[in-house]
Design a protein around this nucleic acid. Structure first.
Lengths: 166, 166
DNA sequence: TATGCAATTATCCGACCGTATAACAAGCGG
DNA sequence: CCGCTTGTTATACGGTCGGATAATTGCATA
């Protein structure tokens, strides 16, 4: 009865968002080992139990956080095309240049990526998330290459996109 | 109370080597979280207690493992100079090309580097190891640049080396 | 204002972490 | 062949991990 922590009910989206971004912050700062359920909940301003109310397991939260990270990176990268030159070659050049510069690749993003790397290798579900976002990125790259003046057959196109990405 | 695990006494160097390389293997495979004292000892064929007989703490073992990794990478990179062309520019080109190709940079090495990244950021002693090996590498790079035909003052030399490394 | 639902907190659990310490035995110098 | 040193194993401890479950309470609805 005494001294129970007061709280506010929040929308599901808001809580999930808070938990995901808390997890990303912690992974960026201290690596995977720092992103414990207790630390994540603490940073999100809730108690640890709530995590399992919104996510089936910590692994699922980790996957969602990684998905969020990848989406943010590809979106940041794609955003440069909004006010890019119209010349196809210049567009492609701008795109790949952006993909190697902040904010899509900066110390924080690299730290995050490093933190998730081994999860990707070990967890199959994580690999799916990785594959999904990667394919989306490659398709975008491929469409830019396809817009290039020189003609090319589809197979060559895909190979070029892969090579360019590497 | 028999049934005690039989064992052989080994030279200190051998044990330390086994423990360090076991730690590196585990970090490469499963990230920092997989390199527990028990897992390391198990892979090295000993019992966990022995780790603290050779290292003051797990952190010290981690530092030594990281030092070993960095030395191996820089040595692998420097090895290319043994049978490299004599032309200064070609030597430099060969050196930086090697520094971006296997075996100095390959999936395993990247995984290792990712596994240690956050330790470097957090642990001051770890940063010293990092700084030491990095400076050695930069000096080597600088000496290659210095051998270039065009003249340059020392300050410019150092700046060039840093830029080249980035 | 009273009531019910569920979002949130609180507490407990088994497993594993790194570490400390004690018991044991391998192998060398006598 | 026999002690002695010390490399090695065994066991225990406190802490934290992710997860499960019970208790509480915010809040929308009637």
């Amino acid at each position: 009865m005494p001294d129970r922590r007061p709280y506010r009910r929040e929308a599901e989206d808001k809580r999930r968002e808070a938990l995901i971004s808390a997890a990303l912050d912690l992974v960026a700062e201290g690596g995977p080992q720092a992103a414990t359920v207790r630390a994540i909940a603490d940073r999100a301003g809730v108690t640890p139990g709530l995590i399992r109310h919104y996510f089936a397991s910590k692994d699922e939260l980790t996957r969602e956080a990684y998905r969020r990270l990848m989406e943010r990176m590809t979106d940041d990268n794609a955003a440069v095309l909004d006010n890019a030159p119209t010349d196809p070659l210049a567009r492609l050049a701008e795109f790949v240049a952006t993909s190697l510069r902040p904010p899509v690749v900066d110390p924080v993003a690299v730290g995050l990526w490093a933190g998730f790397l081994h999860n990707i290798q070990r967890d199959a579900a994580m690999r799916e998330v990785h594959a999904a976002t990667y394919l989306g990125y490659r398709d975008l790259l491929q469409s830019l290459i396809a817009a290039l003046p020189r003609a090319a057959d589809p197979d060559q196109l895909r190979a070029d996109a892969i090579a360019c990405n590497a």
